[in-house]
Design a protein around this nucleic acid. Structure first.
Lengths: 239, 239
DNA sequence: GCAAAAGTGTTATATGTACACCCATGG
DNA sequence: CCATGGGTGTACATATAACACTTTTGC
């Protein structure tokens, strides 16, 4: 921390990369952009870009998110630092240190392919392979992280529109975890956690065309779940 | 990600900062160094330094850890990325993006004040205030993180020597969380988690001078705790 | 014997799990 | 009237929390 010469070292570039998730047609999707230039021209990559001189990484990530999704109001969206990737060879051009973020979107706004990215597309998570740079790894880390956070935080509501049914909330868990959950137990668990969801007084909505209309809920003020809502098959993780 | 001119932007410096914890005399301690130069000359700070051109942040963190603690074998120690701090004004000299790490040491090796740091000292966590830069914040984040990780990982054994008693392991939890735990229940919980600890066949040790000698255990292969070992007073965190 | 620390046992309560069952709606 | 999805009830297993009690050591 005691070097004054700004150019004493080979400069580092600092970028942000975003793993932006949404749930569409009952499947987890991630936002990818197609690279227009070398390296990795034509390959898909996570959206991202350089941190500007007067920005923090968080500010840069939010700006990129707005640019790539074309959303008007990005201020309320959940953005969270994942980790920083700094392996010397991760970008063939120069030393690039990238701060990765995860973001969760309620529904999939089709408008994208904003400013600089050649093309942007929502891709099913399972099909998002062979990405540019070390983005396969970043994406896998991001998926792992949100899966874990669903267990002990109220993050799942970030995937839902402002008003949602408990069935939709359950689908979030089932989609991210790739499991099925018992509906009665899920319902009780969610309602027993104070501040997780709040009932919308008169609301009800048909979900699948058929069936009983479901009551509507809003996200509550709580941020953490106590006790946690554990994945069913989390036995093998002790070894 | 598409800029080729390495000097197009004002350069970023990339550093690592370390929050190195240990337990000493039943209290949580953190390793601090006294700054010899401006800015913040004479103030205490977290150890850290520049990432070198051919290093990853992890490599740099491990190198700094070895230098600051004077330990021979730093390879087995637990080092974990915390998050990256990138606010534009956090270093008055230039743009410094810092990747923060946490490290846990079994006991407190007194040998320190290694290479570049003016002085290094183990400081009780509660007395580590008014640090240089944004290190108060980093330290608080690190403490919060390790407290949370004790709940659902086997991290606590990293604070212990190779062979330890269950009483010592319990002290780790009590020290980091600032609570007391019921000994019989703690014991059952730990032993019921497969792979958390392994009994050392013939071992026993006197702990407090008096009392029954305690059986010795080693850290097991498990890394996560299922079900988790929750803090007692974690009620208020739902709101 | 007494204090201190380890270790065992027991019980009430809470929580998680696996179901069976009823309700409202569209076709 | 049946398929579909929402919602309720209930019995059982397991986990937690609180606390009494025994064991082994040093003084």
């Amino acid at each position: 921390m005691d070097g004054y010469d700004k150019y004493a070292f080979e400069p580092f570039a600092v970028t942000v990369d975003l793993a932006v998730f949404t749930i569409r047609d009952g499947a987890l999707h991630v936002l990818l952009v197609e690279r227009g230039q070398e390296p990795y021209a034509g390959r898909w990559a996570l959206p991202g870009g350089f941190v500007r001189p007067e920005e923090s990484a968080e500010t840069a990530a939010r700006r990129e998110l707005a640019e790539e999704t074309g959303l008007q109001d990005v201020s309320g969206l959940h953005l969270e630092q994942l980790r920083t990737y700094s392996e010397p060879g991760r970008d063939p051009r120069m030393r690039v240190v990238s701060v990765a973020f995860t973001a969760l979107l309620p529904d999939a706004p089709e408008a994208h392919g904003g400013s600089d990215a050649a093309r942007a597309r929502w891709t099913p998570y399972d099909a998002a392979r062979n990405l540019a740079f070390d983005h396969d790894r970043i994406l896998a880390d991001a998926h792992e992280r949100i899966g874990a956070k669903l267990e002990y935080t109220c993050l799942a509501t970030r995937f839902c529109p402002p008003e949602f049914t408990l069935g939709e909330l359950q689908q979030v868990y089932e989609t991210v975890w790739g499991t099925t959950l018992d509906r009665p137990n899920f319902r009780r668990k969610v309602l027993a956690t104070p501040g997780f969801v709040e009932a919308v007084p008169g609301g009800a909505r048909l979900t699948g065309g058929r069936g009983k209309p479901a009551a509507l809920y809003r996200a509550g003020p709580a941020t953490t779940l106590h006790p946690p809502l554990l994945r069913p098959t989390s036995e093998g993780r002790t070894a």
